[in-house]
Every structure is written in C-alpha cells, then in structure tokens.
Amino acid sequence: MNNETTKTVSIEELRRKQPRFQGITSGHRACLGCGEALAARLVTEAAGPDVMIANATGCLEIFTTPWPESSWRVPWMHSLFENAGAIAAGMESAMKAQGKTTKVLSFAGDGGTFDIGFQALSGMMERGHNVLYVCYDNEAYMNTGIQRSSSTPHAARTTTSPPGRERMGKRHLKKDIVSIVAAHHIPYAATTSVAYPVDLRRKVRRAMEIEGPTFIQIHSPCPLGWGHDGAETLDVARMAVECGLYPVIELERGKLTGLLPIREPRPVSDYLKVQQRFRHLFQDHHKAREELEHLQALADYNIETFQLSGHGADDQDTSGLNEARRGGVRSA
C-alpha cells in the first residue's frame, strides 16, 4: 500500500484545526458504523457551538459519556428516559430568565420519543418552548438489547417481536410520529436521514432559526440491531428513503411543505433483504410473501400520500442531492 499520507502537520494539530465545529469528539464508544453517532455529529456540526443539550437515556447518552469521560464539547445534560422534553423546557426557561439566547436542543432515541418520553415531548411542544427536539430513530430499543418500540417497522424482528409460527416479526405498524408532533401546530417538524447529510444539515439550520418548538426525526441505522455490516449503514439508510418506507418530509404548522423526491423508487425488498431483522420475510412461506407485499404496500402508500415520486432528474432529489463534486462543494 502506498500510504502517502505522511504529513508535516501532526495529527493532534490537525484535529484541533478541523474546519468545522466539533460538538462531539472521537473516543466515544458507539459500535462500528453507528448511524446515530454520525447523525448526532452532523446535527451538532450544523447547530454550532451556541447550544446546550438535554439528552434522554439511550445509546447516544451511553456511548458519549462513559463516566468520568464525555465526548461532548457543548453543555450537555443527561435526563431520565422519559423527560428529555421537560428538562429541555426547563433549560430553555432558565436561559430566557437570564436573558440568554443559547438554543436548547433535546436529543432522544425513538424509545425516548415515541414511547417513554412522549408525554414530556408533547407538553414541551404544547407550551411552545424554543427547543429543537431531535429524535434519532433507529427503530427499536437498541441500548437495552433490541426490544421493539412503537417506531419499529411492521414485520421487523426484535428480541420482543421474534418471527415464528404465529407472527412474522412485529405485528403492529410504525407510529407516524412526525405527523403526531406536527399536530401540536408547531412551526416546523421534519424527517431526514443520515444518508442525506445535505438535507439533514439544511433542516437543522432551518430549525435553529425558528423561535419556538421544532422537531426533526433522523433515520439512523443500527448495524447491530438491524443486522447489517457497519460499512453498509449509509447504503441501508439510502434504500429506506429510495423505496418509500421512510418518507423524508417537512411539515409546517401541520401542513406538508417540503419533501425529498425519489428519482426512481426501488422495491422494498432491496432494502429489506440486506438486513437480518427482515430475513424471515424471504423464506418460502405464504406468510412471508404476504408480509413482504404488505411492506411494499406501505411504501407505495407513503409515496402516494406524500407524492414522493420525482418528475425527472433534479439536483434536489434522492440522486441529485448526493452528487459528489470535486472540492466538496455541495448544494448545502
């Protein structure tokens, strides 16, 4: 190997000189190819240094703060599992009382958002706190051992929704949390995916500018829980968007105002077959075939409902947005 990258500048110095804000440093204990670690890094990068974070219990909290160390380089507080919204609301009120403008972010996984922390989130939204709530959606309780959450997609295998004779994985559907949150009549609620960093950063910056409660849900694959190689994290995330199972949309005051058009929708089986959690759907069994069709129908429903199909080549669609350019210039 011709590793011609020997530098005159030391690695330590280079790390200090990185031309981007580093809200999370290296040395965190996330698994190889963790989608959530990447998503959190991208969010803090786009949000900038003038923020403070309330973090619910979950993978993100665990892997960034193995006491007595912390990966965070912004004020950060660990709440309980159920009250990230409430803690963030309190932090925001305290800032306001002191006349400070530091933006408060609230980070939680899908468990801490869809299920356990939902009441605190709903209350925070209802009271109109100036908080950006970011949900890192990896579609199950990964931290505690891959138990199903209300975000787990239909027919996925988790340790508490194992496929067997009676059921093909999870019986119920994935909760449409972004619509539920948007129904609080908040100024901005959006979904995005780690596979589209341009879209992700843009949405974070948009939310940061808004005074009032905002919500961003980020689809972040979990290689361990979903059963794919760490190197495939972005490929998997991309396919989720391209097949329509994970719609990337923006809602303002409850109304659809933006979407990421899919240039060429691909079959859900492309997305499903690379993940162990859906492997049972590819066995020779009538129920497996039925559930596969069910998931395709759910994707078709999303494409139809949100009108996700693109109209020809567009530099802002699923293919155009990720185009690589010499020198790293993107449309972000």
Partner: peptide, 9 residues
C-alpha cells in the same frame, strides 16, 4: 465530566 475527554480513550 469535562468536555471532549473521551479523546483519552
């Protein structure tokens, strides 16, 4: 914990 201390690991 102090900021950015996981760099030690």
């Amino acid at each position: 914990a102090l900021p950015g201390t996981t760099l030690a690991f």
